[in-house]
Nucleic acid binder design. Structure first.
Lengths: 305, 305
DNA sequence: ATCCTTATGCTTGAGTTGAGCATAGGTAAC
DNA sequence: GTTACCTATGCTCAACTCAAGCATAAGGAT
């Protein structure tokens, strides 16, 4: 029967990856100057884990999350110390209001993962070709011959090398590859002179963050979650900028609007918006009904180039 | 800093949804006569949660899992009793060998979810139209008028009513709907005379199982995991039967083979197989290299009808 | 031989997607 | 006020994908 005793007990911790998009920059809520993600213990008084997370994220941000989703449960072995084992249950939360917290609590995603921003003009593309590619090349060459081809293939797939395309949703795989290649300060055998740029976080929080980005980038394509990051009404241009910020990639404008409108994800409010110095744009609002009507309806990424 | 103390401690439990496909029937490993899924406490000596799960599943089945993936972490509030809170971390495991365990440990998926098998000749289609649809209809009518349309829409989407198509991957949504409509014995307000057929399990294990089926049905479409359920070599017909068993749906044969072969998921072994009383089929093996070469490559479901 | 069964190959039409041309309707500079 | 420039929006076209089904192949059973 179910009453069987589980003899050992562990600490349970809730970790939140709360993200928003502000002025075309994706940001994540951090604590203590970006050193870690907000987290807290699961308490007995919490009705459920989601409820526990919701309440104390509201305490911190002053805003209710439009969307919460469980990410992954980690049992970081490095932390199984004297105090016993700790299990971290991580969640992804989306909001459109950054609230009144000091703005340095909201940090740009790409401060932690500069290579993930592949939009033209950003750091990503240069970083990959000038720093990451050569250092991964060295890592490939350092392998025993039998393993060399496997390493090269993995590097090529992750970072779109050798004529392969860049896949935005491989965030976690890229992080783990850099970790294994010791190009990241968290890695045990990392040496300061061979590191790839990017801020670190305490413990395994940067790994948790990368899991969140990966999930969001994947989810956005087949589930209408972007709208949780948008204000009540918005232009299709603003929506596209938001998606591009998350994907770290430019999209084909005309095809993006075709996708959004043909799926009936939005409806016009009747107003227009003329701030951009171009033709005024129609404003739209999200049709919340689609959440009930269908289970698949997303914002695919009609890529450019 | 990370050393912050988490004051309360909880029991941590690993739960496994281990599935295989035997003779065209999808089966799941259970304990104590199908009353619950195999589970066990997370121990300090386990290197990681996956390792812990792997080792004791191997103990139980005598076979190594080809594939293990974390499913979801539940904190069943009903079990937060005197002993304190229990957190269940669930995993999906796939294997192709049912081993030498007594075969009643392996139970047919569809004993627990008869409505999920929509293949012609199985119980599903009749069950939906003759039992589920009318009882859900009553549940819709029982709602306050303002809520009625929302309920109807939800029932229609989940069970493909009102001309909508059946979506195999909505396993969890269907279970939760039946739960809310009190058509399932686990539901608090369920009455014995209005139940939908299907065996129950202890605690929330049937919910965990439905999470597993949902994940597997979704995953199969964009990741080549079916092959973990297949023997070394197989015919395309056998592969199709396996996918159909999981999806609970018939597939268009010619399109299925085109999909599999065009993606280079398999390579011929050169042998043939003549047991079916028809033209002998070529045997194939899975090209394991695709796991490294690509991140997306699945067995989409070329549906029939 | 004839029929039944499963396997395999191929075609066709509908729909989806990537790419880009063309026009609309504003603001800012000259 | 005319020109340049900018973003928004509409539309077309070719390549590709996908559902559906016809046709043929190759075995066993009667």
């Amino acid at each position: 029967m179910m009453g069987r005793v589980t003899r050992e007990r562990v600490g349970a911790e809730l970790v939140a990856v709360v993200t928003a998009v502000v002025a075309g920059r994706p940001v994540v809520l951090t604590a203590e100057g970006g050193q870690h993600l907000p987290f807290g213990p699961l308490r007995t008084e919490h009705h459920s884990m989601q409820a526990g997370l919701q309440t104390w994220v509201e305490q911190q941000t002053g805003h209710r999350l439009g969307y919460v989703e469980q990410l992954y449960t980690f049992a970081d072995p490095d932390r199984a110390s004297a105090a016993g084992r700790v299990v971290s249950i991580s969640y992804l939360g989306l909001t459109n209001a950054v609230g009144d917290r000091p703005s340095d609590a909201w940090r740009d995603w790409y401060a932690f993962f500069p290579w993930e921003d592949q939009r033209v003009g950003s750091a990503g593309p240069g970083l990959v070709t000038e720093v990451i590619e050569p250092r991964l090349g060295a890592w490939v060459e350092a392998a025993p011959p039998a393993e060399r081809e496997a390493r090269r293939l993995r590097a090529d797939v992750c970072f779109g090398l050798g004529g392969r395309g860049w896949s935005p949703e491989l965030v976690l795989q890229r992080y783990e590859l850099l970790y294994e290649a010791a190009l990241i300060p968290e890695a045990p055998s990392a040496t300061p002179d061979r590191l790839v740029p990017g801020e670190r976080m305490a413990g395994d929080h940067r790994r948790i963050l990368s899991t969140g980005l990966a999930r969001l980038r994947a989810k956005i394509q087949y589930h209408p979650v972007v709208f949780e990051l948008m204000p009540e009404s918005f232009t299709l241009g603003q929506l596209q900028v938001t998606v591009e910020a998350l994907a770290g990639q430019a999209l084909h404008k005309q095809n993006f609007r075709r996708l959004v409108t043909q799926q009936d994800l939005v409806e016009p409010t009747g107003e227009t918006h003329a701030e951009t110095g171009g033709r005024p744009a129609r404003m739209y609002r999200f049709r919340r009904a689609v959440l009930d009507e269908r289970q698949v309806a997303g914002t695919k990424l009609p890529r450019t180039r």
